[in-house]
Structure formats: C-alpha cells, structure tokens
C-alpha cells in the first residue's frame, strides 16, 4: 500500500513517514502541489494525504487536478478556521479531512476507512448494513434498532441510506442536499439540519450523545460504523 504525503513542513512529512511505515505503508513525499502531481504520476500511490496550504499549487488546486483523471482516495489536512477551503476540497471530491494538529491514530483510522470504501466500491452495493443495534435494510427500506422497527419518513431514510453507504466518511451539506433533495436545494442547510435532528431522535438511543450520526461543524455529517 503506497501513500503520498504532500506537505511543505519537513517535520510533518518525517513524522508521518515514520508513523505510517511502522504500520506497513510505503510512503512517498512531496513538498508542494506541483511536486505532488509529479510524484503521483510517477508512483501512482493508493492514498493521497494533502495539506491545503502549500506553495506553488495549493491543496485545493491539486485536488481539482487529481479529480480530473483519478479516483484515488484523498485526505485533506487543514488548520482550524479555514472551513471554506476544507469544504471546497470535499465538494471537489476529496474523501475526508483532518484538522491540524492531529494524531497518527486519527490519520490511520481515516485511511483505513477510505481504503475500506475503495474495496467495498468494487463489490456490489450491500443489501443491508448493521452497526451495533442498528440495522438498515436497503432493499426493504426498513430500519430496526434492537429488533424494533423504526418509522422513518422517505426523506429520512434516503439521508440515512446515503450516509450509511459511505461509512465513516464526512459528507458535506451540499453533497447530502444535492443527492437527497436535488441540485436546487444545495444551499438549504437548515432543512438538512431539521431532518438530521428528527432522524437522530428516532435512531439514536441518546440524541444528545449520538453514536451513529456525528456532526462535523460547518462541514457536514458522518455515519459512524464503529470500526476504526
């Protein structure tokens, strides 16, 4: 498994290289956006870890460029307060993000999740997903918790279905809205918020401490599979 780490800070590249190699990944490095594209073309890594703030070509540019011809999983590294860039990268097709400073465990968990999705993407769509006590049956459009059937509205089911088919992946407000409601609703994050709140009230044992649907502030939502 080959990982491209693109970050202009040498100490971060070094630490990630050591950390990732200890877990059996092979690491290739790039110090700026242009170099990242070159190294990607040469080495065709399986995952790209991309810092947003880089000289020459920034992470957003690299993301746009890569998505032009590759579906490689991309994990964005950003700092707090640059929400717009982060959301922009996710809407461009980046798979996930981490806010600096982050721990190597968090990075590994994200990588495992995106790689699982790549694998799962090659198989056909699952007919059902079970997480903890929750079972979502896509074919029969039913949701049960601990054996009891929960009554979801069609919209709530569609939201849950889209999230559950992308386990542990952050889906932006725009992605959820355009997918479930349609393009003309892309900006209506209030509607989404209300539906998520209702959905949580139904599927979460304790809506104050959600274990299935996590809010990523300003960005979107994530379905937690419980695996890491």
């Amino acid at each position: 498994m080959k990982v491209l780490v693109a970050d202009d800070e040498p100490q971060i590249r070094r630490a990630l290289k050591v950390g990732l190699e200890r877990h059996g990944y092979k690491v290739v490095e790039a110090a700026d956006g242009e170099e990242a594209l070159d190294v990607f073309a040469e080495q065709s890594p399986n995952v790209v870890i991309l810092d947003l703030a880089m000289p020459r070509l920034d992470g957003l540019g690299v993301c746009r460029e890569l998505r032009g011809w590759s579906q490689v999983p991309i994990i964005i590294l950003s700092v707090r307060g640059r929400d717009d860039d982060k959301i922009g990268a996710l809407d461009l097709g980046a798979d996930d993000y981490l806010t600096k400073p982050f721990s190597i465990e968090e990075l590994l968990a994200r990588m495992r999740a995106v790689l699982r999705r790549v694998e799962a993407g090659q198989a056909s769509e699952p007919t059902a997903v079970t997480v903890g006590e929750l079972t979502i049956d896509f074919a029969r459009r039913t949701v049960t918790r601990g054996g009891t059937e929960l009554h979801l509205t069609p919209l709530e089911f569609d939201i849950l279905r889209y999230l559950a088919l992308n386990p542990d992946r952050v889906l932006t407000h725009r992605q959820l809205l355009t997918r479930v409601w349609g393009d003309e609703y892309a900006e209506d994050s209030h509607t989404l918020r209300v539906h998520i709140s209702n959905l949580r009230a139904k599927i979460e044992p304790d809506p104050m401490r959600p274990r299935y649907l996590r809010t990523e502030p300003r960005v979107g939502y994530r379905f937690l599979s419980g695996r890491s």
Binding site: V194, S197, R200, P207, M208, P217
Partner: peptide, 8 residues
C-alpha cells in the same frame, strides 16, 4: 434545533 447545539 436545540438538541443539535447541545450534541455538538
């Protein structure tokens, strides 16, 4: 929703 504020 108030729940959302508290949950976050």
């Amino acid at each position: 929703p108030v729940e959302e504020v508290v949950a976050s």
